[in-house]
């Protein structure tokens, strides 16, 4: 043992790069880094706006705005962790909300609207999943096709005039219902992902599919589970969207799939999935994106430039997230 101590004592000094590496590889890094980024950005905006940013109304706005993206980002984390990518979630949410709103027009019942929206979200996500698993099409391919198909159906159903849902009924449900529903979903996801076999299996599949198979994990079952969780979240986001705006427009949800992806990466999750996946990344990321957007607008940055800022952040985070080889390539077995 004393020899061991001598060895470490005698070891060469760590360089800065080594130290950064150690910090980066710490198991709490993916939790703490995005959160501290969010806090830093938040504080910077408070200073730059002379405190206006900390106003309750601004903060409520930020929160409401990020809620929809956050719900979806939490949902897709399940899919991303297995190394699959689905960017059609925006359009799935759109079509779900559209059918929900139509159901409301027929029945005038908020309950029916919520049930239909949720159900459609789950069914459509499961449809994506089946295409991928049964016909062995890459999930990203399925998503690209699904995106335009669902988008087209939505715009045909909606037509030129947005589908309205009684604004008063929405207002009743907008506050507490949303918060409770979101918190409930978020906590369930968090627990399922980090404290049950479901999340562990998904991460394991994302890390090495062959190894997962040999450890008795059924890949298809696990991936199907991930799409069910995602479907619930996407449906819920559809409900939130209807409640927020009180109507469903033709372009609902389009482009949101990319926003969700950006939020996930900003939250510190790798889009390649695997061991370092988590479900809260999306929430933190969604808030970060919204804080960035709102803050930059408030200090007078033109919205066109904001896209650029977001791009730079995206790049930095992907860089920090990606694994680079430090040693020789792993031994190929003969």
């Amino acid at each position: 043992m004393s020899q061991k101590n001598e060895l470490t004592h005698d070891a060469p000094k760590l360089t800065l790069v080594d130290r950064i590496d150690i910090i980066k590889n710490h198991r709490l890094f993916p939790v703490i880094f995005p959160l501290s980024m969010l806090v830093v950005i938040f504080l910077i905006f408070i200073v730059l706006t002379g405190g206006r940013f900390a106003d309750t109304r601004v903060l409520t706005g930020v929160f409401n705005q990020s809620l929809i993206v956050a719900t979806m980002a939490t949902a897709v984390a399940f899919i991303y962790s297995t190394g699959n990518i689905d960017i059609s979630v925006g359009n799935v949410m759109g079509l779900a909300a559209c059918l929900g709103a139509l159901a409301y027009q027929v029945t005038q019942s908020m309950t029916v609207m919520i049930v239909v929206t949720m159900a459609v979200g789950i069914v459509l996500m499961m449809f994506n999943c089946v295409l991928g698993l049964v016909f062995n099409v890459k999930s990203a391919m399925v998503a690209i096709v699904a995106m335009s198909v669902y988008g087209a159906i939505t715009s045909v159903l909606v037509g030129a005039e947005p589908i309205g849902v009684d604004f008063k009924a929405c207002k009743v449900l907008e506050g507490n219902f949303r918060y409770i529903a979101f918190v409930l979903y978020f906590v369930v996801c968090l627990l399922a992902f980090s404290r049950t076999a479901i999340g562990r299996k998904l991460r394991f599949i994302g890390g090495n599919e062959n190894c997962a198979e040999q450890t008795g994990i059924n890949r298809k079952k696990a991936i199907a589970t991930s799409y069910i969780f995602a479907g619930i979240g996407v449906g819920l986001a559809g409900v939130f969207q209807v409640l927020r705006t009180g109507n469903v427009a033709q372009t609902i949800g389009s482009g949101m799939g990319m926003d969700v992806m950006l939020a996930t990466v900003l939250g510190g999750m790798s889009i390649f999935g695997g061991a370092k996946s988590n479900t809260f990344a999306g929430f933190v990321g969604a808030v970060t994106v919204t804080v960035l957007n709102t803050g930059l607008l408030m200090i007078g940055v033109p919205s066109t430039l904001i896209q650029g800022f977001r791009g730079v952040f995206f790049l930095i985070l992907v860089f920090l997230n990606s694994e680079r080889q430090k040693t020789l390539p792993s031994r190929q077995q003969f």
Binding site: R27, A197, R200, K201, R203, F204, G207, N208, N210, C211, A212, Q214, T215, G216, I217, G274, A275, K276, E323, S330, R331, Q333
Partner: peptide, 27 residues
């Protein structure tokens, strides 16, 4: 089952030692 291809089939390389061992004990 222990595969002959350790790095590509028996382990998740970027997962921790603990996660790899615990993979047989979810139940």
């Amino acid at each position: 089952y222990v595969s002959k291809n350790r790095d590509t089939e028996s382990l998740v390389m970027n997962a921790s030692i603990g996660d790899n061992i615990a993979s047989t004990g979810y139940k």
